[in-house]
Amino acid sequence: MNWFKVTVETTTEAVAAVSEILLANGANGVEVADAADTTHIKARFKDQIYDWQDIPHRHTGAAVTAYYPVNSNNVALVAKIRQQVTQLPAAGFSPDAAGIVDTAVIADEDWSVNWRQYYHPVRVTRFLTVVPEWTQYKPGQDEHIIRMNPGEAFGTGTHPTTQIALALLEQTLRGGETVIDVGTGSGILSIAAAEMGAVKITGTDVDERALAVARKNIQLNPAAAKVQLQTANLLADFAGRADIILANILTEVLVPLIPQLDAHLAANGAVILAGIYKDKMDVIAQSLKASGFAVTQVLTDQEWFGVVAKRESELQ
């Protein structure tokens, strides 16, 4: 079988947005080559996670690749992807984010597993390490591992937005809480919450394909058996409250989510929002304030931000 390969040249900051475009257009997963990968890892940890001298890697920018079946719809597919990519600068990204969209038809030569050589266990927070499912790994004392299949979906622990969300969750969750993970994607935040002692976790997503991916990753982690998955458009289709509401999604999706938070957050609960690009922080802060919330903590990794927010009335 041949495959239709689509590669979008972009910037580090736009990797998440481009990945979402490709996934929304039917890709089962994305492959990311990012010149900033070395910075993301080495800036956080003293240990050398990757031997970059032995691994081919980019020196500038980023590229996001997806594979689709070869069929008569490929021309229309590329046109749609190009049109969506050209809109990225209007969403706040630099003009370079809307780079060349390249295509090729390739033979099925184990491309689906070749990328595995580039993934190794990554210590993303003080207590959490993301481990590819095929890797043998013995955790150290107080180290929780999250087994993932990095080829299945965006959100595998290597991007700053996911690392920020995990770090804020680690700092906020004390054990025994209920958690809602909005836009669960790969399920990584839900799995992390289970590993760190949350008693009830619900992962929601509007995309059934994302829920299928999350379900597979949850099955790789016995502690995550308590995670329940639900199809929901943000929180509009969700009934109930939780002590912590998580969302690692783009600002354009966070803004309509914020007015829904109060109805689903338990008393004295906390909201963790990530996926916020630097020029969108004011928008998020203003949206939270308009809904009765105040930002109590901010965490940043280069141009990406994450926040913890609580009800203003409960801070007085």
Rank of each mutant, 00 (worst) to 15 (best):
L211W: 05
E208A: 07
G61E: 08
Y67D: 03
L265F: 03
Y119P: 15
K280Y: 05
Q219L: 13
V307Y: 06
E133F: 08
M148T: 03
V113M: 00
G275M: 06
S94Y: 07
P69M: 03
A14W: 01
A236T: 10
I249G: 11
L288M: 06
N28K: 08
T86E: 09
A17T: 14
L234Q: 03
I276D: 05
E252I: 11
T184S: 02
T10P: 10
E195N: 10
A14T: 02
Q297C: 14
T39A: 06
A16F: 15
A107N: 09
H120W: 15
D205Q: 05
G306R: 04
A90I: 00
L246N: 09
F305K: 14
E312L: 01
G140F: 14
K280F: 08
V124G: 13
T251K: 02
D207L: 06
A212S: 12
L22A: 09
N2D: 12
F93N: 13
K42L: 14
V271W: 06
A210H: 02
H40T: 13
T86N: 09
I276M: 04
T202W: 13
E13K: 10
V64M: 15
A43P: 06
T161E: 12
A167W: 11
F154D: 11
A232D: 01
N25M: 13
A267Q: 03
L246Q: 03
G140K: 14
Q136W: 03
V206I: 09
T103F: 12
L273D: 08
S287N: 07
V70E: 10
A210S: 11
V8W: 15
A104C: 10
A266Q: 02
L234R: 09
A224P: 02
N221A: 07
G197D: 01
T300P: 08
P150W: 11
A33S: 15
V179W: 06
Y137C: 00
I81P: 11
A285H: 10
V255P: 00
L77Q: 12
P69Q: 08
L246M: 04
Q48E: 14
V122R: 11
E208Q: 10
V271G: 05
H40G: 12
T300M: 12
A63S: 14
K280L: 07
G151T: 09
A266C: 03
W111S: 11
L265T: 04
L166S: 01
N114E: 15
N114W: 15
D51H: 13
V85K: 12
T158N: 05
L273G: 10
D47I: 13
D37N: 14
F154L: 01
A285C: 06
I146F: 10
L265R: 04
V255I: 08
A79L: 07
A14S: 02
N248P: 05
E31N: 11
N71K: 09
D282Y: 00
G183A: 00
A223W: 00
A232T: 07
D243F: 03
V6Y: 01
A167L: 07
E143V: 15
N71V: 02
S313Y: 05
P259H: 07
R147C: 07
V308Q: 10
I276S: 01
A165H: 07
T158K: 08
D181A: 04
A210I: 02
N149F: 03
D279M: 15
D142C: 10
V8H: 11
V227N: 12
L229D: 08
A33N: 15
S186A: 10
K46R: 13
L128G: 14
L315N: 08
K216G: 13
P139C: 11
G29R: 04
F45C: 14
A225N: 09
P69V: 05
I21C: 12
